[in-house]
Design a protein around this nucleic acid. Structure first.
Length: 919
RNA sequence: GGGUGCUUAGCUCAGCUGGUAGAGCGUCGCCCUUACAAGGCGAAGGUCGCAGGUUCGAGACCUGCAGCACCCACCA
């Protein structure tokens, strides 16, 4: 093995080996385990969120595959309707063309071409992360099979009366010129104005004043309303107002929905441009006057001077015209929530159009039940509250989009306006008896991307056909996703899954947090804080990173600030850390928290961890290199100790994986590897392997333990760090008697409770505390590591002696002891620095070594610490209630502690006196 | 207006059904000791947001308050 761990030399080669050997396909015949990937945008690139999520899914997949389950991680990508269409339109704009010049067919060809060009990127990136997805089953939401599933689902839902077409107000994005669903509207508080406008009575006598945030929509007003109990307006109901700028007469009405406390207590009603007013208008049977075009300009319903004006320009003109006419009473600053399209950022208009809807209540009810009765479990549990909250107030889902890129809606219209839903024009003609002479036109619209995403867990497995895969892997085992798409995706999959297949799409939903930057900020291009996960893997020079962050900005003026911040934060660029270190970081980050701060420093720490493991493996290989004749083996206390610790770690690791506590799993295995295996066991093993006194049987026992422990550890770590474990295992596995092959398909370690030996562990703990005490003294007095010191031991019990003698060579070596002298009772040691382990006291003679003042200071520090502990513990015991009520073992333990503290205080006092006398 | 989280060492976070406050990074000493300087050894650092309550015992449970974050919602 190379002296230095170098991930770049390992990772791509190892992945190729796995893929070429078909190791990602479901193979074992245990119980099925399946995860479907949340499909990323086909033309997108991998970001930190993906990398995090993929790490978790891959860890679960590898864990289950090694456990012998029939394991499938189903990959695929999403056509991402609006997002992808926008990208290609932007490309066209750069060529000074529009999609309308190309026409629908050629535009879609162009999108497909773009998909072919850029579609492989994310798959390549996933390979670099080590994702063990079954690439042979790769799916794309617009594949023929997927499209068939979408069409079939639409037709069935329609047949079941759960899809309908309706004309009503929708959220209209006037930039993208399409309807969007409620979820795609982001409402943000912004500063605006409240205009107070006078509406004169038609008879010219007086006026009422209306307060509005949207003066331009007054052109579509059909009434003004006040609350029936509002005395300011009593008796005015039924009178006519002359709508300013139009002269149109509208009624003044009284209605309970008005809040008299807001504004003037008078509200204008514009049913065609406001959701509230629409509802009121329906109830009061008021007419609808639409004054806007698809791109939010004023249409011909508006008086001539305003026609064709953009809505915001129209607002300015109308306000100034009102002012000129003396009808503008005042303008107040006002905070209000502005709805914007999440893709375009444009202010969304409520606009009257024909759209397709999913009747959602009948789908929501069983979906709520599935979570209530535990057929689907959220992890962490409390996300179900969020789910219920939304599902119980859910509204019909607008699924049609006025786009070109997506699944065309399978509906045809006859000249009489009749609607025919079916698989093809031929089918609907035949079914509905439409003569060839009657022209049919297919609906121009496409479906919301999330409609196809909602079918993903079963469409990828072959639905509507009853395929082998569907039977085996559906319902899938677990969905791994972020909480940001619980409504968009998770809820809709549950509803569609239950309706289309009769069963839940997955049994568990693991909801992870969102990766943010080190300051807790969301990572985004415009903030300039994005890190490409592969730049952490491979490293990137500062200039390249700056270029990456500052090109293609929507707001180029941000570039200098981004450059400055980047240069400040990464003066050296980003070093290469390797995939395994990044993955381990993600695992350790996967707490139950909602916001996960990504700190590059941690990746460095885990790269060091990889290096540690690498070097430990080198040591094990070197130590077991030379041939040793076969023969009996004898396990030392250390061998049994590390084995005991290993099996406790296996249990903790498995527990972490099963509970989705990847952070705890990572921590357990990290601590075992570094602190127990490397820091202690490898050092212990040297005392056996390198001591002339060891027998061959002991050497064989230790060598076996070294190999076996490392081999099991590699398997244990493999789900989190697949590359380095494979690379090392290829060398260690055979030595442990494993036949060749990949670590990927070796069994996952199981904890054997018999291997855990508390007595051995407590012996080892004693040994280590002796060594630690010695090191403490040596560290305190700067005793050179090369200097071996004699020690005197006072008050040793039989068990102390037994323990000491059985580990003497290790203690001597690791604590730097040249000679041990057991003091008979009553005999005092020379002046020395001391440390106590239980009743026993270790003396390190001070002659020439130890500074008197420093030792006194050290004793003083220790004394105050012990005094504090003693005060607390004896306070407890002084409390009768504690003694009476606490469990006996807790009380006994407390008594023992008090005795220990008292003993130590006495030892410290004595020691203090003796050292002080040296002055 | 409803809802959900969060507040523990300088920073980022663990702390399971209440029983001696932990880790990583950072900081400070001493060491190139043949697995590893991407390392070893040692050390410093916390009235667990605040105030009550339950309990023999609270970082954990209950109530209130404060601060922060997020989600949902039609107040013109």
């Amino acid at each position: 093995m190379d002296k230095t761990y170098s991930p770049r030399d390992i990772e791509e080669r190892v992945y190729r080996y796995w893929e070429e050997n078909g190791l990602f396909r479901p193979a074992a015949d245990g119980p099925p385990f399946c995860i479907v990937i949340p499909p990323p945008n086909v033309t997108g690139t991998l970001h930190m969120g993906h990398a995090f999520q993929d790490t978790i899914m891959d860890a679960l997949t590898r864990f289950h595959r090694m456990s012998g389950d029939r394991t499938l991680w189903q990959p695929g990508t999403d056509h991402a309707g609006i997002a992808t269409q926008m990208v290609v339109e932007r490309q066209l704009n750069a060529e000074s063309r529009t999609r309308h010049e190309l026409g629908r067919e050629r535009f879609n060809e162009r999108v497909w071409r773009w998909k072919e060009e850029s579609g492989g990127t994310i798959a390549r990136q996933m390979r670099r992360l080590g994702a063990s997805v079954d690439w042979s089953r790769d799916r794309f939401t617009m594949d023929p099979g997927m499209s068939r599933a979408v069409q079939e689902a639409f037709i069935r839902l329609h047949a079941d009366g759960l899809i309908y077409r309706g004309k009503r107000l929708v959220n209209w994005d006037p930039v993208l010129k399409t309807a969007v669903s409620d979820l795609e509207v982001q409402s943000e508080e912004e500063m605006g104005s409240l205009w107070h406008i006078r509406y004169p009575f038609a008879d010219g006598k007086g006026h009422v004043t209306v307060a509005t945030t949207r003066p331009e929509t007054m052109l579509g007003d059909v009434a003004v309303a006040f609350h029936p109990d509002d005395e300011r307006y009593s008796g005015l109901a039924g009178r006519k107002l002359a709508l300013p700028l139009t002269g149109r007469e509208i009624p003044l009405i009284a209605d309970g929905f008005v809040d008299p406390a807001f504004g003037t207590g008078c509200v204008k009603l514009t049913p065609a441009h406001d959701f509230n007013d629409y509802e009121a208008g329906q109830r009061l049977k008021l007419p609808l006057i639409n004054i806007l075009t698809a791109d939010a300009r004023l249409n011909d319903e508006a008086p001539t001077p305003y026609r064709g004006l953009d809505r915001f320009e129209a607002r300015r003109r109308i306000v100034s015209d009102l002012e000129a006419a003396g009808l503008l009473e005042k303008v107040e600053p006002h905070r209000l929530t502005i709805p914007r399209g999440d893709r375009s950022g444009a202010v969304v208009e409520p606009w009257l159009t024909d759209q397709w809807y999913v009747r959602i209540a009948p789908l929501a009810a069983p979906a709520i039940r599935a979570v209530e009765d535990g057929r689907i479990r959220f992890v962490p549990e409390n996300w179900d509250k969020t789910y219920f909250e939304w599902m119980r107030n859910i509204k019909d889902w607008c699924i049609s989009r006025q786009l070109w890129w997506g699944h065309r809606i399978p509906a045809w219209y006859g000249p009489d306006g009749s609607i025919h839903v079916g698989r093809s024009e031929a089918e609907v003609r035949a079914r509905d008896g439409i003569a060839a002479s009657v022209p049919l036109t297919q609906d121009e619209d496409v479906l919301d991307t999330w409609f196809s995403s909602a079918l993903w867990p079963f469409s990828t497995l072959g639905w509507p056909d009853e395929t082998q895969e569907l039977q085996t892997f559906y319902p899938t085992s677990v969905l791994v996703t972020g909480f940001d798409i619980i409504f968009f995706w998770v809820a809709r999959m549950i509803m569609m899954g239950l309706h289309c297949t009769g069963d839940v799409p997955f049994r568990e939903v693991y909801v992870h947090g969102l990766i943010r930057d080190q300051d807790g900020q969301k990572m985004s291009k415009s903030k300039g804080n994005v890190i490409d996960p592969l730049d952490i893997v491979d490293g990137i020079a500062l200039d390249d990173l700056v270029t990456k962050r500052t090109t293609g900005l929507m707001q180029p003026q941000l570039a200098p600030a981004i450059e400055r911040a980047t240069r400040k934060q990464y003066p050296e660029g980003i070093a290469a850390h390797g995939t395994d270190a990044l993955r381990f970081t993600f695992a350790s980050l996967a707490t139950l928290s909602r916001d996960l701060r990504f700190d590059l420093g941690r990746v460095g720490g885990y790269r060091n961890f990889c290096n540690k493991l690498w070097n430990a493996a080198r040591f094990v290989l070197m130590s077991t290199n030379s041939p040793l004749a076969h023969g009996p083996e004898e396990l030392s206390a250390y061998d049994r100790w590390i084995r005991s610790r290993l099996h406790a770690t296996i249990a903790a690791m498995r527990e972490g994986l099963v509970q989705y506590r990847f952070d705890l799993a990572a921590q357990a295995v990290y601590e075992f590897t570094w602190y127990e295996f490397c820091d202690w066991y490898l050092e212990f093993s040297k005392t056996i392997l390198q001591s002339a006194e060891s027998t061959d049987a002991e050497r064989r026992g230790t060598r076996r333990t070294l190999i076996e422990t490392l081999e099991i550890l590699l398997r244990l770590l493999h789900p989190l760090m697949p590359f380095i474990t494979e690379e090392i295992w290829q060398r260690i596995g055979p030595r442990a008697g494993k036949s060749a092959g990949s670590i990927m398909v070796q069994p996952y370690p199981e904890a054997e409770s018999a291997a855990v030996e508390p007595a051995i562990e407590s012996d080892a703990k004693w040994t280590m505390s002796v060594i630690l005490a010695m090191r403490g003294i040596r560290g305190e007095f700067d005793i050179a590591p090369s200097f071996q010191t004699p020690v005197y031991i006072e008050n040793a019990s039989d068990s102390d002696r037994r323990r000491f003698e059985s580990t003497a060579s290790a203690i001597s070596r690791l604590a730097g002891i040249s000679k041990v002298m057991w003091l008979p009772e009553g005999q005092k040691a020379p002046q020395s620095a001391t440390a106590s382990i239980g009743k026993m006291t270790i003396h390190v003679p001070m002659a020439g070594l130890i500074d008197v003042d420093a030792e006194l200071a050290r004793l003083g520090r220790r004394r105050s610490k012990v005094e504090q502990e003693l005060a607390r513990a004896s306070g407890k015991l002084g409390n009768e209630n504690f003694v009476r009520n606490a469990p006996a073992e807790v009380v006994a333990q407390e008594r023992e502690r008090v005795a220990g503290f008292k003993r130590e205080l006495a030892q410290l006092a004595e020691q203090h006196e003796r050292v002080a006398s040296l002055r």
